[in-house]
Structures are given as C-alpha cells and as structure tokens.
C-alpha cells in the first residue's frame, strides 16, 4: 500500500475512527511480527499473551495497541481480521 493511495484525514475526528485492529495498515499477525521484529522469537513470542493484540502500523511506522485510533484509518477485508482475535465483523 503506497502512501499516495491513502485518503488524507479519512477520520478528521480521530475519536470517531475505528480501532487500529480493523485497519488495513495495521499488521498484528504473529508470524509476520516474528519476521518483522528480529529477536522476538528468541526469548519471546508473537503468540504470547503479553503482546495482547498489538501490531505494526505501516503508515505511522509505530508498534501500536490494537485499541489505538488515528485519522488514517482504512478498513481491511474481513479475511485479514482472522488474527485479531478480539474483533469480528458482523
């Protein structure tokens, strides 16, 4: 996803934006985090409870809680929600 395709300020009022857990720019799949964060698998784990549902935001370049919100939210497809165990699309 290139930055140019992001609608600027999709949620000008951040408070109304959905959680990062449902954002297409947010990746919290355990196996991809273990690949993206060197050493995580050595004495830690992408599958552990302490990590909760945190993930990497490719827009902000930050490691964020799945409960965060920002103005650049874009919904992701339901298929990609499978790793966000606490969220479901109804």
């Amino acid at each position: 996803m290139s930055a140019g395709r992001i609608p600027p300020m999709a949620f000008p009022d951040v408070a109304t934006a959905p959680r990062c857990a449902a954002c297409r720019h947010f990746d919290n799949a355990p196996e991809s985090l273990e690949g993206a964060i060197p050493g995580l698998k050595v004495m830690g784990s992408g599958y552990g409870a302490a990590r909760a549902e945190d993930g990497l935001c490719e827009i902000r370049g930050r490691y964020l809680s799945a409960d965060c919100r920002c103005a650049d939210f874009e919904p992701r497809s339901p298929a990609r929600l499978r790793y966000t165990q606490s969220v479901k699309v109804i």
Binding site: G48, A50, D54, G55, Y63
Partner: peptide, 13 residues
Amino acid sequence: GVSGSIAIAGAVG
C-alpha cells in the same frame, strides 16, 4: 525481558 519490551512498546506506541 523480550515480553516486557514488546508489551511496553505497544502500550506506549
């Protein structure tokens, strides 16, 4: 250790 770092990294963004 690693779990502490990754947990706090997420908590503080």
